[in-house]
Simulated assay, not measured.
Amino acid sequence: MPTTILLTGANGFLGSHIVRELLARRYNVRALVRPGSNRKTLPELPIEIVEGDLLNPADVLRAAKGCKAVIHAAALAQVNPARDPQVWAVNKTGTENVLAAVKQAGLKRLVYVGTANVFGFGTKEQPGTERSPYTGQTYGVDYMDSKVAATELVRQAAHRDDVAAIMVHPTFLLGPLDSKPTSGAMLLAIAKKQLPGYPAGGKNYVHVRDAAIATVNALTMGRLGESYILGNENLTYHEAFALMASVAGVTPPHFALPPTVARFYAQASQWLANIRGRVPAVNVPMAMIANDGHYFSSEKAVRELNLPQTPIREAVQEAYDWFSANGYLR
């Protein structure tokens, strides 16, 4: 009988690819999704959908019973506004409920999907690793802080409570099926010529399918209680925007945005939004993050989880083609 895997966040960007990878390996997939949530990327897939709330322990336990393992990919990846109690509820309390269900239902493995932002970033020459201490608290963003807290919960459960857990931490995901869109919004903005300039920083990029493959590999590979950064290429925003513009067939943003100007613009945007009672298009923490180079090494995940390293140009091309085919560029 095929093994049943519980997947939270199955209708998200990464979750949609994890579903497909699990099915390709002949796992049975049980997806815990919120009632009324968007399931555009899960059409007619042979999966069992269980409606429930991650914040309701009874719902999570009901979904977990009868499964062998769980991949916990659900999260609220919100940085604007930077502070929101709901982010802590979903990311930390939701993880607490998953851990409780793992213990009560006797699941044999938990793969927790975090973010590389819970580690300290480095330079291109010396990128951050799983050993680099967290430095993101300076930004004042609940998303990063809550994911640090959730990661620590899973780590403690693995080392103190004998929970068979592995933690994977994707960097910036690119590829098809980004229906919201999330990270693909950057590519869309480039394609529509909405970004006149580029900030001073940079980040690490990974094909979303590569991250999904390594996440599913973690069901049977890797060391329990360990974290793995799932990334690939470190690019400055100047380099990344030029690549995206090349794929989209447009002129890349040519104006270098100095850090002080970026921060001033964000402060002005926040001030105007507060007067109007709206969420600003850009906030100060977002500008601070964009001014830094969030560069990471995925050597450990490549070695121990067989993380593929698909060229980022292919990820950008596949994302662009999917957006084009689904009407996002009209």
Rank of each mutant, 00 (worst) to 15 (best):
I47N: 05
V261G: 11
D145S: 04
V216L: 07
L307R: 02
S227Q: 06
N234V: 10
N91H: 10
V79M: 11
I275L: 14
L243F: 05
V302C: 14
A281F: 14
A64D: 11
D145L: 09
G327I: 12
M167A: 00
Y139T: 00
L329R: 03
L42K: 08
M288S: 00
A100G: 15
L188N: 01
N56D: 14
L219K: 13
F13N: 01
Q309W: 07
T171G: 06
Y139C: 00
G231Q: 12
V102S: 12
F296M: 08
V118A: 01
L7Y: 04
F323C: 08
A325Y: 02
A101S: 08
A158L: 13
N80C: 06
Q267V: 08
I49Q: 09
T41K: 04
L42H: 04
R160N: 04
A319I: 13
E314G: 00
P57S: 00
P280D: 05
A157T: 09
E233M: 07
Y139D: 00
V33P: 09
T4G: 06
H72M: 09
L173G: 04
A10F: 11
D142I: 06
Q194R: 12
S179G: 03
A242N: 10
T93D: 13
Q194I: 02
M167P: 01
G9R: 13
Y143P: 04
P133T: 08
K40G: 03
G225M: 08
Y198V: 02
G52V: 14
P133H: 10
P181C: 03
R34M: 12
V118N: 03
P280H: 07
V206S: 00
L61T: 03
E96C: 05
H207A: 07
R131Q: 06
I229P: 11
A77G: 06
R223G: 01
M144I: 08
K147R: 14
P2C: 05
G184D: 04
Y320K: 04
T260D: 02
A116L: 11
G52W: 15
R209T: 14
G120A: 03
Y320V: 05
D162M: 13
K68V: 03
A69L: 05
A191D: 04
V302E: 15
L61K: 05
G197F: 15
G122A: 15
F13L: 02
A301H: 10
V70R: 09
T310E: 09
G293R: 07
A325M: 02
W88K: 05
K193N: 13
S183F: 12
V247Q: 06
A101Y: 11
Y143W: 01
L230Y: 05
V141A: 00
S37W: 06
R109G: 01
A185G: 12
L23N: 07
L219R: 13
D178Y: 10
L219A: 11
T151V: 07
L307I: 02
R209M: 15
M167R: 05
P127S: 03
L42M: 08
G222Q: 09
V282T: 14
N217E: 08
L6Q: 05
M288Q: 07
G136L: 13
I190V: 15
A73V: 09
G175A: 14
G122N: 15
L42V: 04
T251R: 15
E21C: 07
